[in-house]
Design a protein around this nucleic acid. Structure first.
Lengths: 328, 328
DNA sequence: CTGTTAGCGCATTCAT
DNA sequence: ATGAATGCGCTAACAG
């Protein structure tokens, strides 16, 4: 910037004024400065500017599990859109279900003084965030934090699972399996609770043999369904509730072309679900990311303590055929 | 940091030493300082640190079209992984095929002094980047830049298209349609060139009626296929080459359950392509992002001028059935 | 209207 | 082994 000032024959402050479009500069000098800027290819250092002005960093930090998972990719897109409305950029990081890594990432983001921190919590403890005094603009997504109070945006896991299982019960199924993610995950727990609750409400008995949790990957879900279908006929399920998009797709791989012998309802929408005729409980990852970002960015950091809010994003069942196969 | 120094009863510089793990501090003082840090919940301001040290910002900027597109989500994941190896964070931005917006985003990233800039170029001119003197660490992905020289990583578009069309020719097809993206896009142009080239090489004639470019969205691709299939029998195509993942999925929606009357090869892999038996030309978006990030981060910024490199990531055809339907 | 001084939070350089 | 002074690039608060 000093170079620009010298080249334009004005003071450093005048350059600053031109760049920030502050009033009170002669058009002639504005032109000189702009010419110098163009000649030198100068770009203001926003980092130095925000350091001095003490203003916001205009940066949002997002910690998700994996950008390549379509569910989180949509969340990231939503957050980026909201950030853009607030003239902010988004730093996206992937924790890969690793608590230690999550902590490193959060620390790195705090060290960069992000204005808002959005986290899909993976660790068993998040009190370290509150310890930094930053808790005000932290919002948790998809899962509630552990050992700390903060705004949280969730999908209606239990109700979604109940919708799915009740739907299958309505078609006469009594032996309904669940293929879900690791029980250490909040969403997996909640969906299993919903599953049990719906079975109880429908007067069906829970058979532990039909509960296959602990598999998050596509391959393990495929295996789980294969094992279920290999059971003797009287113990075999007639329907399955796949508790997330990975599980649903894994199950479809197990069943391949012949899906008529096992009714299926999946949790989470996925691309081509319509074409494949897969009945799902649709969640709204875009809305979740949007709400979370607005909560975090909408709050002025000086508001002081507040009680943590919890937003539950609704779900809906979309019938497409795979969930409407009657029990044999 | 001053607060910490006061709380610990030492000078500011000593705190700095402890934080940066510099040698030459009494263990006793280290303990005092660490206690003060814990008590105050202090986190170093990395922004101020990098400003003073003049070192790298440890930030990578990525400009893609849309994080929610699985293709770009994988690119983003790859770039994030490489950035992590270099102890850097990734700022992801979406230009949405808008040249003006792309320029805004690039400027915003340069103003933050990112160490490396990775761009899927959307605009008609990118000389403005070179004008900032930053060109050294800029790498373009998926499409070459306009009016400027810089490292570029591309997939083998023309060869991929040729593979697809040659495959269909081998099964006896003569009337092969192409459903592709807007002709303003480099990838669309290249794939159309490959299409024409393969037809010429195979002795088939090009029928302009079977060329349907200008549609990037899923819905427009579906429409395009519907129109092709509504042609009189003698003018109707017996095969189609869908030139990107959106087009392929749109085409599948048009065909629905009955895909036996139109052979199909798609450009780009997509989830469930295996299950649906869709033959595709597989590209490697992860590798593309990885190579681009390594090119950008591997270069020390002081290396001075260099000749722009161009890396072409290979493609391969994966036969799954939809492309092996013989011509009737 | 314009320029000068001071300082954001930290690391560098040089004293002590 | 520790600390004081100086400055990174910029803007806020004052001068002129």
């Amino acid at each position: 910037m000093l170079d620009v000032a010298n080249a334009a024959g004005v003071s450093l402050k005048t350059v600053s004024r031109v760049i920030n479009e502050e009033p009170g500069v002669t058009p002639a000098k504005v032109a000189q400065v702009e010419a110098a800027i163009a000649a030198l290819g100068y770009e203001r250092n926003d980092i130095a500017a925000s350091l001095r002005s003490g203003a916001k960093s205009s940066t949002v930090g997002l910690v998700i599990e994996d950008v390549a998972n379509p569910f989180y990719a949509v969340v990231a897109q939503a957050v980026e859109d909201v950030a853009r409305e607030h003239a902010s950029l988004l730093i996206t990081t992937s924790a890969r279900e690793d608590a230690e890594r999550e902590r490193q990432l959060v620390t790195a983001l705090l060290r960069r003084r992000v204005d808002a921190l959005l986290i899909v919590p993976a660790g068993p403890d998040h009190s370290y965030i509150a310890a930094t005094g930053f808790a005000g603009n932290t919002v948790f997504l998809d899962r509630p934090p552990a050992n700390t109070e903060a705004d949280t945006v969730l999908v209606d896991n239990a109700v979604g699972a109940e919708l799915a299982v009740a739907h299958l019960l309505r078609y006469g199924h009594q032996r309904i399996a669940i293929v879900g993610d690791a029980m250490s995950l909040y969403t997996a727990q909640e969906r299993l609770i919903g599953y049990r609750h719906a079975l109880a409400a429908g007067g069906a008995q829970v058979d532990e043999e039909l509960i296959s949790m602990g598999h998050g990957t596509l391959d393990s879900a495929r295996e789980a369904v294969n094992e279920l279908m290999a059971l003797p006929l009287d113990r075999r399920p007639t329907a399955v509730f796949t508790a997330n998009n990975r599980c649903t797709i894994g199950a479809l791989h197990a069943l391949e072309a012949d899906r008529s012998h096992l009714a299926l309802v999946g949790f989470d929408e996925f691309e081509l679900a319509d074409l494949l005729g897969v009945t799902v409980v649709r969640t709204d990852p875009y809305r979740m990311g949007q709400v979370a970002a607005e909560l975090a960015l909408g709050r002025t950091s000086s508001e002081g303590p507040h009680h943590a809010r919890r937003v539950i994003v609704p779900v809906e069942l979309v019938a497409r055929g795979s969930g409407e196969i009657p029990a044999s």
